[in-house]
Design a protein around this nucleic acid. Structure first.
Length: 759
DNA sequence: CCGATTTCCGCACAG
DNA sequence: CGGAAATCGG
């Protein structure tokens, strides 16, 4: 049972509000999940049937948590409730309705981003495009972007303005054709096609509109245009739409999220009720004040001020490190110290801007024997061995799957390389047959060398055997075991006793346990209604499950380990003690953001997110020099540091006076003298606190500073945006009227122009 | 066709 | 610097 008295007044209002649009602006740590779950419980208590409620979150983790908490509040009353991510909701819709779109059938498969890359690569070749000029990643991003804006091939082609775009339009078309050919959808298709089905079939839309009387969307600030449109369509009949979000925590602009969706909610729904949750239950006053001060530097935001009844707490600690190793050493020492005084290891999180920064920290923690859990890098389902097994499974469930066929034809090694693969694929295309079927006809495939032919036939036999086995076997675990055995995959790994193979075997074991978990769940849920959790027992259900749930590396908050992760992935979590490392211009904010005020604002929101994860204590670290990408960088302090009032910060500087004194105005002189190595000349410059982002560089003849104007023989006038390298090998990033260029000073003649802001 | 060597290039990331 | 892809040589 739930009790409204457990909530504060605004929260209660949000829960009680029944009909009509509702916008809840929920600051960090203001109990928004609690409001959402109570609201669902309350609706059910008011007599709304659970199947009339649709709740959408962004991550599986959030959906999972919400399901658990609602289950706790309403028990079995919740049967039939839809709580899912955008993507799994769309899959469920498409499984029933996609037959209405030409060329697709309801047994479609879902391709992940690496499958997507593979296809794009072939499409680029097909269109005779130079992979240098049209990079797979970039083209993929453009296509994804288009889909997030609901532009299909035709729309995209129409609005293509230049040569580049027109070429990409061709690739987009080819790419989409290939997907259709394999009856596959990529992640972006899931949303786009769901919208398309609704747009083209009003009667289907009507059915879903009627079904979902009450719609709740979490993290609304992270929605892109396609998701926004989907929600709008579904909610347009009853307008009982409740969205929750925080514009200050919008940090996914780079993947299509549009803050405007939340900022313009009141324009879309003029009758909307707007509530602000501003009481924070998580952090100390000091931490909140610091976070508020930082984020209030943003222009485009809804004004709100978080407050708390929590104690004032301790000041944030600012540590000036010599370099990244010193930084890691400091973090490790602090953790060890605090641990010795009674804190468990899972009280700590270390946050960084880029994954590349994690290595040093990891090394140090390992050296000191502190248990840690790293949440970054390539994900579980993207590891080679897992992808290989998955490829077998997918091929068994969809014999037309060319991408996965190509992946495993020669895995493990069967002496079938690119040439043989091409011949087989070619033949399949000619005969218009599923790839997995043509291998049995290897005798008819032209131009195959006898050796390859024999190998292909052996492969055909192997797959045939596996297929027969898989068709009558319900347990995914057993199928996986059989694949590992019959292909010899496992034995090869056992035979090779390198540590990598060891790790691979462990990952496969992990995968097997995921499979058996699924088998168990599928067994117990078989009788549940179709709108329950959407479980399909057997192989195809499992494949869908892993495609949509890519989070095996889940952070187990119970595990007694320090957590290392990026500031992006920490969103939605909280820790008693938070370390933020790399508080440097060029790192955070990153070089690419420094030009664009809009991007700076997004970085600043990221800083806000990071700070507000902490319950009690925040440590901020800055390193005067840092090795990154094999180059030594000298960065100035992050501007975000300067945005935190001095009275909230306590500076620890090992090279300076004894610790404990107050942070002072930015100490440019000290910074400079500490950075400069012996024999290196550094000119004096006195910059105001505002003008930041000015790395210093050692250079015997001449030195360049960020912000300076220069004249280039060829490109003309420009402004220095970044400096890396040292001595003779200085590389400058220069902005020539908006064009960014990398210039090595060694080879080019640059003339310095007088900077007008010489203060 | 395979393994070794060189070259290239770098944010963030859920589904 | 380090991982992935391209290229080389057997």
């Amino acid at each position: 049972m739930y009790r409204l008295e457990d909530l504060n007044l605004v929260q209660q209002e949000a829960v009680r509000h029944k009909d009509g649009p509702l916008l809840i602006l929920a600051g960090a740590g203001s109990g928004k999940t609690r409001v959402l779950t109570y609201r669902i419980a309350h609706l059910i208590a008011q007599g709304i049937e659970p199947w009339e409620i649709l709740a959408i979150t962004f991550t599986n983790k959030a959906a999972q948590e919400m399901r658990e908490r609602v289950g706790f509040l309403v028990g079995s009353e919740g049967r039939g409730l839809w709580i899912s991510t955008f993507h799994s909701a769309c899959v469920r819709i498409l499984r029933r309705e996609i037959d209405n779109l030409p060329g697709y059938t309801r047994d479609f498969v879902i391709y992940d981003s690496s499958d997507q890359q593979t296809i794009i690569k072939t499409c680029l070749k097909e269109c005779n495009l130079d992979e240098k000029k049209f990079q797979v990643r970039a083209v993929g991003a453009v296509i994804s972007d288009a889909k997030n804006k609901l532009l299909d091939c035709d729309n995209f082609e129409q609005q293509a303005a230049d040569y580049f775009q027109r070429q990409i339009a061709k690739v987009y078309r080819a790419y989409q054709k290939r997907l259709k050919n394999s009856n596959a959808l990529d992640f972006d298709d899931l949303i786009m096609l769901a919208v398309l089905v609704f747009r083209q079939n009003p009667e289907i839309l009507g059915r879903y509109q009627k079904r979902f009387h009450y719609i709740l969307i979490d993290e609304y600030q992270d929605t892109n245009y396609a998701q926004y449109s989907l929600v709008k369509l579904l909610a347009s009949q009853y307008r009982n739409l409740c969205v929750v979000g925080d514009d200050d925590q919008s940090v996914y602009g780079w993947r299509g999220a549009d803050v405007k969706n939340i900022l313009d909610f009141e324009r879309d729904y003029p009758e909307a009720k707007v509530l602000k949750l501003e009481q924070n239950y998580r952090s100390t006053q000091t931490i909140l004040e610091a976070a508020n001060c930082v984020v209030s530097n943003n222009e485009k935001r809804k004004e709100k001020l978080l407050w708390t009844k929590n104690p004032k707490g301790q000041p944030l600690v600012f540590y000036v490190a010599d370099d990244e190793r010193d930084e890691a050493k400091y973090v490790t020492e602090r953790i060890q110290f605090l641990h010795n005084s009674g804190r468990p290891y899972n009280d700590f999180a270390v946050l960084y801007r880029t994954n590349a920064q994690s290595r040093v920290l990891e090394e140090r923690l390992m050296k000191e024997g502190i248990p840690y859990r790293i949440f970054s890098g390539h994900k579980f389902y993207e590891r080679m061995e897992i992808k290989d097994v998955l490829a077998y499974l997918r091929l068994l469930s969809n014999p037309a799957d060319k991408v996965n066929f190509a992946r495993i034809l020669n895995v493990p090694k069967r002496g079938l390389g690119g040439t043989s693969l091409a011949r087989v694929m070619e033949y399949a295309e000619e005969q218009n047959m599923p790839v997995l079927e043509v291998v049995s006809e290897a005798d008819y495939i032209p131009d195959l060398r006898p050796k390859a032919r024999k190998s292909v036939l052996a492969f055909a036999l192997l797959m045939q055997g596996l297929k027969e086995f898989a068709d009558k076997e319900m347990s995914v675990t057993t199928i996986v075991e059989e694949i590992l055995d019959r292909t010899g995959y496992r034995n090869l790994l056992i035979a090779d006793d390198s540590p990598e193979s060891q790790a691979r075997l462990e990952n496969l074991a992990e995968f097997l346990s995921v499979a058996s978990e699924y088998d168990l769940k599928a067994q117990s849920r078989q009788d549940e209604d179709e709108f329950g959790m959407g479980f399909i027992p057997g192989l195809s259900g499992f494949l869908e499950h892993v495609a949509l749930v890519a989070e095996t590396d889940q952070i187990d908050q119970q595990e007694a380990a320090v957590v290392l992760m990026t500031m992006h992935s920490v969103k939605g979590l909280e820790f008693p003690v938070v370390f933020i490392v790399g508080m440097e211009e060029g790192i955070f904010p990153g070089t690419r953001s420094q030009l664009e005020p809009e991007l700076i604002e997004e970085e600043r929101r990221l800083c806000y997110v990071a700070l507000t994860r902490a319950r009690e204590k925040v440590y901020l670290c800055y390193a005067g020099q840092r090795m990154l990408y094999g180059r030594r960088q000298y960065n100035l302090r992050s501007r975000f540091l300067e945005e935190i009032p001095y009275n909230l910060l306590e500076e620890k500087d090992p090279s300076g006076e004894p610790p404990g004194r107050q942070y002072r105005k930015p100490k440019f002189m000290e910074l400079r003298s500490r950075v400069s190595a012996p024999g290196v000349h550094v000119s004096a410059f006195g910059s105001p606190a505002r003008k930041l982002g000015t790395p210093l560089v050692e250079n015997a003849q001449e030195e360049f500073l960020v912000g300076e104007k220069i004249l280039h023989d060829k490109f003309g006038q420009g402004i220095i945006m970044g400096v890396t390298g040292k001595g003779r090998q200085v590389v400058l990033t220069i902005n020539f009227q908006g064009q960014l260029k990398q210039i090595a000073t060694e080879y080019v003649n640059l003339t310095k122009l007088k900077t007008k802001e010489s203060d």
